[in-house]
Design a protein around this nucleic acid. Structure first.
Lengths: 342, 342
DNA sequence: CTAGGTGCAAATAATTTGCAGAGGC
DNA sequence: GCCTCTGCAAATTATTTGCACCTAG
C-alpha cells in the first residue's frame, strides 16, 4: 500500500497533448492506492464505490492512459482478460500465480534473466521483454495457513535484496583483501591490500547502515521472502580470487592482477545489472555500488602500475612481468564505457 | 509436419464416455497435419476449406476435446485469444515470440527450469506448470533473410539434444576413468578404472551410433538450432571429479569414492530429468542413460566394498578409512528409489 | 473557443451455450 | 433406443468505439 501511496507528483508525466481531468485523477489515485494485480473490472468496482457516475469506458480509457504514462503495466495471466499492476518505481518482474486463490506473487531472478538472454542470443533473437510465470498453488492455499501480510511493495524488497547482494559482495571483497594482506610478502604490496581492506570495511559499514535504515521503513522487511533471486557473477568472484591467492607462487604483481580482475568483474556486473531497471532505489544501489567498485579498480590499477615501475627500476623480475603489465594496463579508467556492453 | 503426421493410432486415447465422429476426426486430422501455433480461427478457416458445413462451435468443442485428450495444448501469447499447439509426443517447452511476424519458436531450458524450481521452493509454492516467453524480433525479421525451414518437429530436436548431452557426459566420464587409470597406483585399483573406461567407451560408441541413426531421419537435423538448453549438473560432475583425482594424497579408496559420487550425481540427474517429460524419444534416451549410469554406480560400489574388505584383511589403512567406508556404503542399490524424489 | 475528456449505448471479438435434430454403438 | 455430437443462433465476457455533450487551458 505504501508503495506509491502518495501519488508521485510526477503525475504530470502524462502523455503529450493530454489534459487533466478530475475523473481521471480519481481513477489513477484509486489504482495507485491498491496493490496487486487488478482486472479492469476490479477497478471499475472500486471506482463505482467512490463515484458511481464514472463509466466503465472511462476506466478502460484511463487504464490505457496509465499504461502509456508508465504508471501501469498490463499483464496477462491467461485468464482471458488482462490485469494491471503498478509500474511507476516498480521494477519489471516475474510472477508466481496461484490457481487456487488467484493471487499472484512477484519475484525477480537475474539468474533466469541471464539464461533467457543466452537463449535469445543463441537463436539470434532480439529480446525486448520476457515473461516468466509459475502456475501452481501458493503456500497459504496448500497449508491452509493465514494469508500472510505479503503486502510490502517490491520497490522496498528490491532495494533490500540489492543491498544484501552488495553487502555480500563487499564482505567477500573484504575477505579477499584481508587474506591478501596476510599472504603478500612484500611490505609495499601488503600495505596496498591493507588499504583496500580498510576501504572495503568502511564501504561495508556504509552499506550496512543503509540496510538498517531501510529496515526502519518496514519492521517486517527483513522477514519477507526473497524478491530478487541471484547467484550470479559477483558473488563468486572474490571467493575465487581468494582461492587463487592461496596458490603458491603468487607474487605481488599477480595478487594485484587478481584483485583487478575481481573488481573489474564486479564493477561490470553491478553497472550492467543496475542499468536494466527503471528508476528505483534498487537501481541506485546497484549503480552506486558499481561506482565504488570502479574506484577500487582504479586504485588497484594505479598501484599495479606503480609497482611495475618500481620493479622495472630495480630490474627486479621486470622481464617476466612486462607482458602481463600490459594486460593489466588494458583496464584503464576509460574502460568504463565498455562495461555497459556485454 | 512429419511430427504426428500419421494420426497416432492412440487416437483412441479419447476421453471416457466419448463417441467417435467423422467430423471430429476430420478436425483432429487437419489440426495434426498443421504445425506451429494455430488460433481457433485459423483452424476454422482450414476446416471450412475441407468441409464448409462444419460449424465454428464444433471446432471450438473439438479443440477443447483435444486438450482433454492430450493431443493439443492451449497457449496464450497475450494476443487476447488462445492458440493451440501439438501436445502428443511434443514435450512442454518455452517460446520465443516474434512481435513482427507473429511466428513463435520453441525451446527448452533445463537450466531455467531448475531455477524456476528453486524460486518456487523458496516461496513454498507448489509449481504445476511454468511459462517462459521471450518477446521480441526474430532473426528472419531483423535481418530480412529468408524464412528458414525451421519446420523440424521438436520431438526430433529434443532427442538430438538429449543424445548430445548424454554423449558429452559420457565423454567426460571416459576422460575421468582414463585419468583415473593413469593416476591410481595400486594395480587392482588401476584395473577397475580401466574396466570402467572401457565400459564408457562402449557406451559412448552406442550413443554415437544412435546419434547417427537419428541424423538419418532428417538430413539437416544437425544444423538446426539448439532446442534444449542445458549446462546443468551432469556436465561438470566428471570434470570436477577428474580435477579431484589430480590432487595429491588421493588413494585408491578416495578415487573410487569420487567415482561413486560422480556416477550417483549423473544417475540422479538423468533419471530425474527424463521423468519430467511426456513419452518421447528424448525421455527414453535420458532414462536409459540413467540406467547405464546406475550400473556403473553399482559396479563401483561393489569394487569399493571389495577393496575395503581386502584392505581390512591386510590391516592396511583400515582404521583411517573405516568411517568413510560406511559413507560409501550408504549408496547401495536400494538408494535408487530415493533418487526419484527431491 | 477548441481539443481533449466523458457517458451511454451500440459494436467487436473470442468463446460458450441452449436446444432440436443427426448419428454412432 | 440412448446418449453423444452437431449446427445454428443467441448469450456471455472483455474490451473498444461512435457520437453528442462537457470542461480544462
Amino acid at each position: 500500500m505504501a508503495t506509491t501511496a502518495a501519488v508521485p507528483d510526477l503525475d504530470r508525466l502524462r502523455p503529450a497533448g493530454t489534459k487533466r481531468s478530475s475523473k481521471r485523477d480519481l481513477i489513477v489515485n484509486v489504482f495507485l492506492k491498491q496493490e496487486g494485480h487488478l482486472s479492469a473490472d476490479d477497478l471499475v468496482a472500486l471506482i463505482k464505490r467512490a463515484d458511481h457516475r464514472i463509466s466503465r469506458a472511462t476506466v478502460y480509457r484511463t487504464l490505457q492512459w496509465m499504461v502509456d504514462a508508465g504508471i501501469a503495466r498490463k499483464v496477462d495471466f491467461g485468464e482471458g482478460r488482462f490485469r494491471f499492476e503498478h509500474s511507476y518505481r516498480h521494477p519489471r518482474h516475474f510472477h508466481l500465480i496461484c490457481k487456487t486463490c488467484n493471487r499472484s506473487y512477484e519475484f525477480l531472478s537475474s539468474d533466469i534473466e541471464a539464461l533467457v538472454e543466452e537463449v535469445a542470443a543463441a537463436r539470434a533473437f532480439t529480446a525486448r521483454q520476457s515473461v516468466v510465470q509459475i502456475y501452481g498453488t501458493c503456500d497459504a492455499c496448500s497449508t491452509g495457513r493465514v494469508t500472510q501480510d505479503e503486502g510490502s511493495n517490491s520497490e522496498l524488497l528490491f532495494a533490500r535484496d540489492a543491498l544484501r547482494i552488495a553487502i555480500a559482495t563487499e564482505r567477500s571483497g573484504l575477505e579477499f583483501y584481508a587474506r591478501g594482506a596476510r599472504l603478500v610478502k612484500d611490505p609495499r604490496g601488503r600495505q596496498i591490500f591493507h588499504k583496500l581492506a580498510t576501504e572495503e570495511k568502511s564501504h561495508l559499514s556504509t552499506l550496512e547502515g543503509r540496510y538498517q535504515d531501510l529496515l526502519k521503513q518496514d519492521p517486517q522487511l527483513e522477514s519477507r521472502p526473497t524478491f530478487l533471486f541471484f547467484k550470479g557473477a559477483a558473488h563468486g568472484l572474490f571467493a575465487a580470487g581468494a582461492d587463487q591467492l592461496r596458490r603458491d607462487g603468487v607474487d605481488d604483481l599477480e595478487a594485484l592482477r587478481i584483485g583487478i580482475r575481481c573488481e573489474r568483474g564486479s564493477h561490470r556486473f553491478f553497472k550492467r545489472y543496475g542499468e536494466r531497471f527503471e528508476d528505483s532505489e534498487g537501481k541506485r544501489i546497484f549503480l552506486e555500488f558499481a561506482d565504488e567498485e570502479r574506484e577500487h579498480l582504479e586504485l588497484l590499477i594505479r598501484e599495479y602500475r606503480a609497482l611495475v615501475k618500481r620493479q622495472r627500476a630495480t630490474g627486479h623480475k621486470a622481464a617476466a612481468s612486462s607482458k602481463r603489465a600490459r594486460a593489466g594496463g588494458r583496464v584503464k579508467p576509460g574502460a568504463r564505457a565498455r562495461s555497459a556492453q556485454r
